[in-house]
Design a protein around this nucleic acid. Sequence first.
DNA 1: GAGTGGTCTAGACCACCCC
DNA 2: GGGTGGTCTAGACCACTCG
Lengths: 238, 238
Amino acid sequence: MIKYESIAKDIQEKIEQGIYKPNDQLPFEAEMCETYGVSRITVKKAMDLLVMRGMVIKRRGSGTFVKNITLPANDEYSFSTSNQFSGFFHTEGHKDVRSEIKEFQIINPPEIVAQRLKITEEDFVYYIERIRYSEGVPNVVEYTYMPIDVIPGIKKDILEKSIYEYISEGLGLKIKSAHRTVRATLPTVQEEEYLEIEHCFPILEVEQVAFLDDGRIFEYSKSRHRGDKLELKTVSVQ
Amino acid sequence: MIKYESIAKDIQEKIEQGIYKPNDQLPFEAEMCETYGVSRITVKKAMDLLVMRGMVIKRRGSGTFVKNITLPANDEYSFSTSNQFSGFFHTEGHKDVRSEIKEFQIINPPEIVAQRLKITEEDFVYYIERIRYSEGVPNVVEYTYMPIDVIPGIKKDILEKSIYEYISEGLGLKIKSAHRTVRATLPTVQEEEYLEIEHCFPILEVEQVAFLDDGRIFEYSKSRHRGDKLELKTVSVQ
DNA sequence: GAGTGGTCTAGACCACCCC
DNA sequence: GGGTGGTCTAGACCACTCG
């Protein structure tokens, strides 16, 4: 559909298939213009996407090259947060992923949550507490708040699958961006039980405020992951 | 110098100064074209920069708005890794930041490090182990490997200041991007001593492979931070 | 000097939002 | 319908790398 996306996708696939190998030089921008029948700015935008994804590097005066790095390991539990959203869907779709809902209520949000969601303490939000299992092993406890005005119609069966799928496919809303803060902590007493760990066990906490396409905030959440089950990958490009 | 950067900088400053407040609508792109005397694509590129920095949001058909979020807290120990490099310099420049060098040698790299740096085990690298203190309190132990061919001339006094300053200003090299993996772990016995903590204390580990402008890898490092002293912020934009 | 990617222009059409 | 940002064009000049 969109030209620069399909060009980026084409090149990315060729890299993943090994047609272009690490350190290989990609075709020049001028060459790609002819190949794909587009203008140079469009090719440039496609390559900039791949730069943001950490897959290629550009050197003025030299060319564009496949990046010099072992590609994101296919760890089931790692999720990547470069500038695309791979990973926003929490590597759903893997075998044997299920959720156990511990709490599901509609409440007035605590002050801090109201601040983060930019709503008042009198508004209503879903409060969801769920444990996510992979291959039968508990990985993460998620504490999620979502304004009912923004995301109406959540039922228990949706939580057991993917909220994100419901938002994008069920409601036709587009997820746009997220601000995340990552910390290392220790589990609470309850989390020791939920995650089947001892007190002296590292927890990777990901606090997230997530935005829709139209600028509304639809989620404030804290995900507290077993330290041995999640690593978070990022690419930063200047 | 570069037009889109200076436009972005101008708008960013106005947001930080409160001239544009959260949820305010920014001038239309067409309007900014006149204000700054540039074409629309240039304005667009400037605004896209601010979108990547998580400062504004664009809505097709409506306009561009200041984002709806408490701005990155000025925690001394938090560093941000959106798509600019704020934070690459480890929030240096704060008062009372100093380093204690525990190891500084030139060695052949272990196999894993050689793989990450894309060199052979016969090449030479600096190996640096240092503790960084802020306000007299140990925050982080850094284990750093740098190829001597890429970053020549490191001396002990450079390590006590900022390696990054030496690379960019001393050597005239440009830092371009970094791949990071973040994990939560527990300290080693030695780190308990270095960081003045007990064994049961969360550690935020940041593993990093860093690239220069010209595509060369100049650093492989693991930074292991006291969990109570660092949080890592990211913005991901689709 | 030849060739690369970086920036920028002036203009066009489209998808989307709101009135 | 009028106006927004999204995509795209064809062409220009510049900064940089490399032989």
